[in-house]
């Protein structure tokens, strides 16, 4: 046997040994992660489940997880984030994120399933939070879908789509810019109707229903909360203008379709970000991202009522993925 071959085999063997030992070596530095849940509710628990399941796929000794659930009465100062010496805080939901943002204890924090405008609002209201974000010590995977993904879904479902309506209110108007640029990219004409906190949304919706081929729903505590949503969906039914919702609930209540990420899917993505972070592949947390994994909900009876034949979810996912080759959008 030639010397080169022996050396090659030895190298191969060493690689194999390293590959086998590597997880065990990592275990010597097992990171401690604090999972801070905003509440004991379905969305938070499912997020945690998705996170744990993905982590389990990496191996059984990836991290030590501590779980804290914020009860109704607890205040920020009642939970110590630095105890018991966590290497990372995973803040699940808005309350936990707010607490994590306020407590600047030098631990990297990843916030998940928080609406983008709420996450950005936290950064805008605190210079230090913004700095931590830029330094890769405070980041998030937001709950919302990238507007472009939503526009593309509408385009695929409605081949004749040229005008899309958007109802914005006092909080959701913060998202206007991003929707405007997404519309340009998707080559759709976007018509925005805005309402203030004291305005009746009826005239605004009326305007949108008359001049558009579809409506995009964006959550707003005034313009489009669950009680106005029911009503908007009903009127859109009547006018045969399909609504692209932002949650499964919208599809169940009468939206034609929605692209959304389940809490499990966001938890899964968080596990991947956390894994890369603690394994040193990235020394800092990436900047805030949109969800990478998503589901598409379709309402076939709505489709029937507007004479539309729906493709199945799988082929929709495929088509959307082809348009998004570069992974999650920032």
């Amino acid at each position: 046997m030639k010397w080169e071959i022996k050396a090659g085999l030895l190298a191969l063997l060493l690689c194999g040994v390293w590959a086998v030992l590597h997880p065990a070596m990592a275990a010597e530095f097992t990171p401690r992660i604090l999972l801070l849940l905003s509440g004991d509710t379905e969305v938070h628990l499912k997020t945690m489940r998705g996170f744990k399941e993905r982590l389990d796929e990496y191996g059984s000794i990836t991290a030590i997880l501590d779980v804290k659930k914020l009860g109704d009465a607890e205040r920020a100062d009642e939970i110590s984030l630095s105890n018991p010496g966590s290497d990372l805080v995973l803040a699940i939901g808005t309350r936990a994120t707010r607490m994590a943002a306020e407590a600047d204890v030098g631990i990297p924090m990843l916030s998940i399933v928080v609406p983008k405008i709420t996450f950005n609002g936290l950064m805008d209201s605190s210079v230090s939070v913004k700095k931590r974000h830029e330094a890769g010590k405070f980041s998030g995977i937001v709950l919302d879908q990238p507007p472009l993904r939503r526009m593309r879904l509408a385009r695929i479902l409605l081949p004749d789509l040229s005008r899309i309506g958007l109802l914005l209110g006092p909080t959701s108007q913060l998202e206007a810019d991003e929707y405007v640029s997404a519309a340009k990219q998707a080559d759709v004409q976007l018509n925005i109707s805005a309402v203030g906190s004291d305005t009746n949304p009826i005239p605004a919706i009326e305007a949108l229903l008359k001049g558009n081929d579809a409506l995009l729903a964006v959550y707003d505590s005034v313009a489009l909360n669950p009680s106005t949503a029911k009503w908007l969906l009903y009127l859109s039914y009547q006018n045969r203008i399909p609504v692209i919702g932002f949650s499964r609930a919208y599809v169940d209540a009468g939206a034609l379709a929605a692209v959304y990420s389940t809490p499990e899917q966001i938890g899964r993505q968080a596990a991947e970000v956390v894994y890369d972070f603690v394994n040193g592949k990235s020394g800092s947390l990436p900047l805030q991202v949109y969800p990478k994994y998503y589901s598409i909900g379709l309402n076939s009876s709505v489709a029937r009522s507007i004479g539309l034949s729906l493709p199945d979810e799988e082929s929709l996912q495929r088509q959307l993925k082809q348009l998004e080759p570069s992974g999650p959008v920032q």
Partner: peptide, 11 residues
């Protein structure tokens, strides 16, 4: 500003 619970609420 909305929370995830607001956004994901049932209609």
């Amino acid at each position: 500003l909305p929370t995830e619970v607001d956004v994901l609420a049932e209609i």
